[in-house]
Simulated scan of single mutants.
Amino acid sequence: MKPLKVLQLLPALDSGGVERGTLEIARALVAAGHESVVLSKGGRLVEQLQREGSRHIARDLGRKSPATFLQYRALRKLFEGERFDIIHARSRLPAWVAWLAWRGMPAGARPHFVTTVHGMHSVSRYSAIMCAGERVIVVSDTVRDYIRTHYPPGRWPHLTDERITVIPRGIDPAEFPREYQPSDEWVARFRAEFPQIAGRKVLTLPGRLTRLKGHHDFITIVGKLVADGLDVVGLIVGGEDPKRPGYAKEIRERVQAEGLGERIVFTGHRSDVREIYAVSECVLSLSSTPESFGRTVLEPLAMGRPVVGYAHGGVAEILGELFAHGAVAKGDVEAAARRVADVLAARTPVVEHNTRFLLAKMQAATLSLYSRLHSQHRA
């Protein structure tokens, strides 16, 4: 089979799960001898993308303006000139413009059109474009069930089950190795930076300081464990949301008001989360809304670190696969505190080895989908 020429479209290449997934597939395409092209308005990850062998086309399809839709004519010319085999749209507005361009091409000359539903978008005709691909990739069973519920075949006859493919996100075991231990130098620096952790059992809540991440529940859980005589310290690992500074102030004031200033530490944004997971006795996931996947649950579990979390969305899938004992009902802080206490007392089973949520599996499944779709076209 001849090498494929694949175009991925997204708004920008700065940071985030969509961007990470785009680079991971681009890297796999290049490694397999295919031609990888990414279209976005640019960003800090462009240099890495190009260094890893892909080509970048700078075009802003993410600006929410009627004028953005008018770019479909120029995009159609691009498609016709480049003769892509696969077009893979990863975000709603770029998907709309790409679909308008693609729809206007002669059927026999069109590339194949693939979409990925990364999250549970608001239900609308605008969001429905992510279900318009000839193949629709979803990142978890949760997202598959969501689009099946809200875009049923009775109203959306093209969205049949055979068009939907679940390809879970994955991680590289080399990046988050099981039983990883940070260097003595890192441990010394971290303890010097946060002396409150000395001699205490570390509990970690990763995630940006937004209300959805469950920081108030985390404070409640740490307070309960301290009241029960357990010598714990809670790390809130994540930067403040610049759009909502009042929330960060709110949770910091609550920590002080409840006398937990020495028991709950705000680390801010960190680039060494792997090391923080490694020194944590338990990681928590307390989001009030279901997540489409749950990378901050998978990463510590892959390292063998227990996670206690609210069992909904993609988090429930990951916990069910790797550490079912850590799953509790959403909002049940009493149960969460008991499960954390079980972890601290070594009354839990060991974390299962991660054999499902692997980066290599995600890459292979995506490239296989491209190849099967292209082969059908040739047949």
Rank of each mutant, 00 (worst) to 15 (best):
R208K: 15
V6G: 04
R208T: 13
V38F: 08
I219N: 00
E258C: 10
R55H: 14
P66K: 05
V307I: 12
R51G: 14
L286W: 02
F266K: 04
S288Q: 14
K224T: 15
V226E: 02
K2S: 14
L344Y: 08
S122I: 10
T267V: 11
A198G: 10
P177Y: 09
F69D: 01
V265Y: 05
S54F: 08
R211K: 14
R144D: 02
L49T: 02
A311W: 05
A364C: 04
S285K: 06
V273N: 02
G313D: 04
R125P: 02
L4R: 03
A379G: 15
I171P: 00
G154N: 12
Y126A: 04
A302D: 10
L13Y: 06
E193T: 15
L45Y: 02
E134K: 12
P111F: 09
S183D: 13
L159Y: 11
R178P: 05
Y310I: 07
E52C: 06
S292Y: 05
Q196V: 09
H118P: 01
P66Q: 05
M120E: 12
H158S: 13
A74P: 03
V226A: 11
L344W: 09
G246W: 13
S285W: 03
F113K: 00
E47D: 14
I147Y: 04
R155H: 11
R252D: 01
D172I: 11
G234K: 00
T366M: 08
V166D: 02
L39K: 05
Y310F: 15
G261I: 10
V308N: 01
A335G: 03
A345T: 12
K77Y: 05
K249F: 06
K249Q: 14
P242Y: 11
G313A: 12
P242F: 12
I147R: 01
P290I: 13
Q363N: 10
E82T: 09
L7A: 06
W186L: 08
A329K: 15
V123D: 04
V279T: 04
L230P: 01
L100H: 06
L225H: 04
R305E: 01
W156T: 13
R356M: 10
D217V: 04
R20W: 05
K361R: 15
A12M: 07
F218G: 00
G304C: 12
S287Q: 07
L225W: 02
P11D: 10
I318A: 03
R254C: 00
E24H: 10
L373Q: 10
I318D: 01
H353S: 12
E19Y: 07
S280T: 07
E179P: 00
G331A: 09
L235R: 02
G259N: 08
T204S: 15
P152N: 05
